[in-house]
């Protein structure tokens, strides 16, 4: 292992240009992947925030008794799809309207805005189907005047999210594939550059397993380095965009570590495949 590591480092020293090319290739592939991931991450969290606002609002006829209202709140709260139910009295509705539309506060008079119950749905039940089913069950109460949940809006957000997920997955897959192809061809070049060494190793009776060792370490180290460079590039870009274009969130530590390790893994697998092919040729 000691020897394998030494041989791997020797490859770095002996062919610095080729090594730098491999690292750069891995770095830029992962960088593109990282930027894309960042966009996906922020789009996803923006959509999730919008989705969280999905709620069903049921307006209550004036003069309904507090007991009846309380009963509905209790009933609805026990629906499996429902996360929380809140009763908003006429007074509260007026307060809120005044707060939100400060300068027009005189326009509102008590009694204009009806009392309502606001139903928030659990994660996973914010699709149009569930929203509709919950509002159907609310319609049953005859003191409920009207139900609103922004049908069109819910459908739009939901569709957008589906498209974003599909596009994200397929684009991500394509990116990963292209990255792996580019990386494995640079590694193949590195191996061709050392084919003489491999030939001599075989000639003097080194086992394939032994020959593979330094190349695997080499690929792993290059991948790791490429991953770190990619992370740095992504972070710099992120800071730049944050300063001049739009505030966004960066990857958490865990995702960042996963990204760098993915680089190392790609380097390792690329090496394993290329050297395996090379050794298989006899």
């Amino acid at each position: 292992m000691n020897l394998a590591l030494r041989e791997a480092l020797r490859a770095f020293r002996r062919a610095p240009m080729l090594s730098a090319l491999s690292v750069t290739t891995i770095a830029f592939s992962l960088f593109a992947f990282g930027l894309f991931g960042l966009v996906a991450l922020n789009l996803g969290s923006a959509l999730a925030q919008i989705e969280e606002r999905v709620e069903v609002r049921a307006f209550i006829a004036s003069g309904t008794s507090p007991e009846a209202t309380a009963a509905v709140v209790g009933d609805v709260g026990s629906f499996p799809e429902v996360a929380s139910v809140r009763f908003v009295s006429e007074v509260q509705a007026l307060d809120r309207a005044r707060r939100e539309l400060g300068e027009f506060e005189d326009v509102f008079e008590a009694g204009i805005l009806p009392a309502s119950i606001e139903v928030r749905l659990r994660d996973g039940f914010r699709d149009p189907e569930s929203v509709r089913s919950v509002s159907k069950r609310l319609e049953v109460y005859d003191f409920i005047d009207d139900i609103r949940y922004g049908e069109e809006w819910v459908e739009k957000v939901y569709r957008l999210r589906n498209i974003a997920t599909a596009a994200g997955l397929s684009l991500g897959l394509i990116f990963a594939l292209v990255a792996i192809i580019i990386i494995s061809s640079t590694i193949r070049m590195a191996i061709l550059a050392r084919s003489r060494e491999i030939r001599i190793m075989r000639l003097v009776g080194a086992t394939n397993q032994f020959i593979r060792g330094p190349f695997l370490i080499d690929g792993f180290l290059k991948g790791l380095l490429g991953g770190l460079v990619a992370l740095l590039l992504t972070w710099v870009t992120f800071e730049f965009v944050g300063q001049y274009v739009v505030q966004a969130t960066f990857f958490g530590t865990r995702l960042a570590v996963v990204g760098v390790l993915a680089g190392a893994l790609i380097g390792l697998l690329g090496s394993a495949v290329s050297v395996g092919r090379h050794l298989g040729k006899v």
């Binding site: 003489r196 030939r199 075989r202 003097v204 009776g205 080194a206 086992t207």
Partner: peptide, 15 residues
């Protein structure tokens, strides 16, 4: 590999 360790090989171009 085990067999090759019992052989020595040299070439015209030294390798």
């Amino acid at each position: 590999p085990a067999l090759r360790r019992r052989l020595g090989v040299v070439f015209q171009d030294f390798q």
